[in-house]
Amino acid sequence: MKIIADKPKLLTETPMHYCPGCTHGIVHRLIAEVLEELGKADNAIGIAPVGCAVYAYRYFNCDMIEAAHGRAPAISSAVRRVVNPDNLIFCYQGDGDCASIGMAETVHACMRGENITVIFINNGIYGMTGGQMAPTTMPGVKATTCIYGRDPKKYGNPVHLSEMLATLTGPAYIERVACYDVPHVKKAKAALKKAFEIQMQKKGLSFIEVLASCPTNFHMTPIEAMDFVKTQAEPFYPLGVFKDITKEEANS
């Protein structure tokens, strides 16, 4: 019998600190698998965020940098300028990091079209700090800072980051994926692979938004939380490719 699925070598043996059923672990594994398949495991550089994934540098066996809150795209822009152009650089960010405090860095890195990959984990809540409202919290969803559900009149509207960034000229590839069942995890892996391939072809910034669950702060079981992403989050944040420079080049 041969092994068809195992823990990727790019992940360390350190047990992950994430809560049971957290989507971060799935995305970590997908990134490691994709980098190994592309043969880039030895020269990948990851930028860890602040948020639940703050310890991502403990789990990846490649070079990792821990950025200040929200500054991962800025750090990776700097890293891009000093390292070998063949190195793959990825930022791993949550919604508080990428869409709130780091919005300026995210937008400006996209405007410059830096040759990096940004992986944006959107679970619509601040996980690490205890379930406060995030910029991506959907209307009507309860959080500790909007206990009767988010009212757009009072708290503003959530941001659709992928759609917003797709209006810019800089980014090369923008896709939103989800991880709530096996087919969607496989699609997410394909999207990550495409994003890294675009970076290898030096076409510019690739941005992958992953709809994630947070069982602890949704106050649900992991299965219920995945179901919430499927039934509530996916209709509000539709999946799909929002920008693909390779297709535009093929059509022109």
């Binding site: 041969k2 092994i3 068809i4 699925a5 994430y18 957290c22 971060h24 672990g25 799935i26 096996v182």
Partner: peptide, 12 residues
């Protein structure tokens, strides 16, 4: 594929 902690090794 679904395991967040890469606990499972599958043989076929």
């Amino acid at each position: 594929t679904m395991c967040p902690d890469s606990v499972i090794t599958v043989y076929r």
